[in-house]
Amino acid sequence: MPRASVGIGLRDAYVEPLRDLRDRRALDVLEVMIDDAQFDRRRMDAWRSLGQRWPLVAHGVALGPGDAIGLDREYVRAVSADLAAVGARWYSDHLCFLRVAGERGPIDLGHFAPLALDDGDLAVLRDNAAALREQYAGTFLLENPADILGFAGQGDAHGRESGRRYTAALRACAAGALLDVTNLALQARNDGFSAGVFLDELDWDRVVEVHLAGGRRSGGLWIDSHDHPVDEEAWALLEHVARRADNLRAVIIERDDRLPTLEVLLDEVAHARRLLP
């Protein structure tokens, strides 16, 4: 089995340091936030330039694959064009809904909202995945978000059911899995289950990518704030997942706030590499 590539989520602050980085082998891959190109087109030039040195994969936060009101077709067209233009190896977004019908039209919640993943939700996911594929024919991955609301319950039975429903959603969308082990760890803490019971229900052949980040407490709950170093529990989960996921291709360290220097993130990349088989 080839070892998975390890890299970082590319943020604007790292563009210049990466251009100046002498040792290209300090990381294997970069993940771009594909939505961000819509707010500043200069990012496309920067990404294409860095794409000459490292392979690029793409991540998004605005698709809403579980939106029962349907996908925003204009957004899907724009993102699909950008994915092709930067030559992303694959594209991922979160298993959630984002846009709902408000009194004056669709409202973007600005945050991943949890799906019940009942038959109705699975039908929505199937339809939306088909709509996505009309524009984007490449590999699509679905990430497990951290469900802060605990909508579906507490304890190991809930954790096990969450793993089953995540797998059912992947099958409905014919998608690969982007397993965010930090989200899993935080949800397990908030909802009182063992991460292992969720993992035992996974379709391991589908796991293509892993995300790692650092969360923090807000009140009595953990949120996936991406503003701290990766913690020990997430590192241990990476080690566990890497042993079981034969199709794992990439491990990405994410940071969105309280950004450290590139060197600090590259230390985390090196640590992740040491944990892979």
């Binding site: 943020r11 604007d12 936030m33 939505d35 961000d36 707010f39 500043d40 990012r43 936060v61 409202i107 973007d108 919640l109 600005g110 945050h111 802060i148 609301l149 605990g150 807000s218 009140g219 009595g220 709950l221 949120i223 996936d224 704030s225 991406h226 503003d227 969105d256 706030d257």
Partner: peptide, 24 residues
């Protein structure tokens, strides 16, 4: 408490995402 945490997380994500206008 969970609804408050959702809103806090929502505000945090709005604040850090690459130039995206604040959510309505």
């Amino acid at each position: 408490e969970r609804v408050r945490a959702f809103r806090a997380s929502q505000r945090h994500k709005d604040a850090v995402r690459g130039g995206k206008p604040p959510t309505k």
